[in-house]
Nucleic acid binder design. Structure first.
Lengths: 345, 345
DNA sequence: AAGCGCATTGAGAGCGCTAACAGTAAACTC
DNA sequence: GAGTTTACTGTTAGCGCTCTCAATGCGCTT
């Protein structure tokens, strides 16, 4: 069996009766080509199912068609889901993704980043939280004048385009949902005090209650650190109260999982005696039992958008870019599972 | 500032006083080059920190320098950790990894696989469990005469090289460890009956007890399905017994986490009143509290070895390969955390 | 009508590497 | 010692694409 030869730009050019260069221009969108020619070429491209050879392209052009992804904590399912989506989007756009871990931040991290920029010649970078707020790393990228997109950054919002979701609104809405379900006594476990999202989620919770003129006793609110253990301590405190809440909203899934465990110890059936809400929709949320009601971040969309923005060349030169277009807020969704229940009945 | 030009094979050739072709041969290890020349070239390569341009290489050669990774369940932290390691190894070897998801297995999956083989022209494939046991997928790859490595396969062990760990031995040793710590009444939750590893882990547990002449009452052993809920049910049964075990060994971390939750409900402090052991060392094991004692699979090593084997060309033609060299068993390790305790005191 | 500017298209070189073949010198054969 | 093999190294021609620069055509000015 003869091996099918992949169609080349030549084949397209021949069939469309134009030069290779014209096809190249159509495909790269940037040059001036008459609409007529463009259509003609695109038609043939579709017919032949032509897809450019990335390696040839990379070799011939000044672009590398590589994008870099910098992340920090390799364990989070947030990171891995983002990675998977980014990989998929890159493949669809003919880019390759070079992934670099920056945990154990030190001098070597910066070296490695510089190598990524100078040797691998990435066309752009994506920074995941929390590395996206590291000033030294930002400086290196800015000095190289490389376009980059940050995901859910907390500071320096004018440094680069960024993609995030509305943590405040999500917390507001999910709290509202609990209120709709008849809950009036709703506990809250605050996230890590160093992270911006903790503040936003807390405020959303407070404002939702306030908008329904519900007062919260201060002992319903505990400080957590986003980890299971801190959530467990917080939940034990709240559930030891004489007048227990009928629902607890934890600022992330890990802490919500801990609430379930604490409820278990107090023999409070979830959701019959206690509704529990998390945040993030990590793996954990659908591992434990009952499955957690939680807020899902649009991770796939975030990844796709990041790749889109970088490959579009829209922000090719950040110093010239319109900072008003930096902010990209995506929609979240509330996932109702078995850990919450309507108690109006 | 002038942009540093990346060193090319020409530069190396000039400095080493040989032709480009000789350098190429040294780098690709395959041709006959005298030891003297090889050393001379390698020295210059190191000096200039030369690394070949993957795209040029791919363009000029018949190899694509792409490897494919097929996985099945995107959520598992096993998968994502493997992916991360594989990505790293690939980068080090100048390969690129194309990742393809095969969940929701259907006709489209096979199409996508064929495209991976014919259009992307991957040089080899890595199959993660459980997709590595899918006969249709295997057939497509074998028909294409493409080298592939499977991770922890359960069937068809002569079809390809594979990498696994000794589940039996791990279960045996971790059970032994519990016995050393004074436990005599050890419960066990069996894994999903469809998976080979369940059998092996169960047998390891049984044999460890037998080697110490410890009898297990049948009610100490429950069938699980590898998920949290089944683990919870199993644990509730075991912990409802009049004569409770002092330790429970669950066949994976999800079920072990469920044991913790059940223990909580029975107000059995872990590890004081009950030791709990899991298997896999997933993210979950160090999320929940107390952190789980568990068995860690050498995922990073597995990934590195898989890339190594594929890039070495050792198994370039599977039909000619020595099937005796297919089996690669890597060492596991037992991670002792806070969920187990010595009770001999 | 000649000259100019603009928009669009094409020709040829070359990106960095390797396959295939072509040398070259030493080693071996008889 | 002439012919032949062996072991290594060099030369040439692309891989598929995009860059630079030149060419073409067309409307418009003077």
């Amino acid at each position: 069996m003869a091996i099918k030869k992949r169609t080349r730009i030549q084949d397209v050019a021949a069939k469309a009766n134009v030069s290779m260069m014209t096809v190249s221009r159509v495909l790269n969108q940037d040059a001036k080509v008459s609409d007529k020619t463009r259509e003609k070429v695109m038609k043939v491209v579709k017919e032949l199912n032509y897809r450019p050879n990335v390696s040839a392209r990379r070799l011939a052009s000044s672009k590398s068609f590589f994008l870099g992804l910098l992340y920090d904590n390799p364990s989070g399912s947030y990171t891995s889901q983002f990675l998977l989506s980014a990989l998929k989007s890159c493949r669809a756009k003919g880019y390759h993704l070079i992934v670099d871990e920056c945990s154990d931040y030190n001098q070597k991290t910066l070296e490695s980043l510089k190598e990524l920029i100078e040797v691998s010649r990435v066309d752009g970078l994506i920074l995941l939280p929390p590395i996206c707020d590291n000033p030294e790393i930002l400086q290196v990228i800015i000095d190289a004048n490389l376009p980059f997109i940050r995901i859910a950054p907390d500071t320096n919002l004018t440094a680069s385009p960024f993609i995030c979701m509305d943590d405040y609104q999500a917390a507001f809405e999910v709290t509202n949902r609990l209120i709709e379900q008849g809950h009036r006594k709703i506990g809250f476990i605050i996230g890590h005090p160093d992270q911006g999202v903790s503040r936003l989620r807390y405020q959303g919770y407070l404002d939702a209650l306030r908008s329904h003129r519900i007062n919260v006793p201060p002992e319903y609110i505990e400080q957590g650190l986003f980890d299971y253990k801190s959530g467990l301590d917080a939940a034990m405190n709240i559930l030891s109260l004489e007048d227990k809440p009928t629902a607890i909203f934890a600022s992330n899934d890990d802490m919500a999982a801990a609430v379930l465990s604490a409820a278990n110890r107090f023999k409070l059936d979830v959701p019959e005696k206690l509704s529990v809400v998390g945040f993030d929709d990590t793996q954990l949320a659908s591992t434990i039992w009952p499955h957690l009601t939680t807020v899902r971040q649009p991770i796939n969309e975030m990844a796709a958008l990041a790749i889109d923005l970088l490959s579009s060349g829209k922000f090719a030169d950040l110093s010239l870019a319109n900072k008003a277009q930096f902010r990209h807020v995506l929609d979240f969704s509330i996932i109702e599972r078995e850990s919450t229940q309507d108690i109006t009945a």
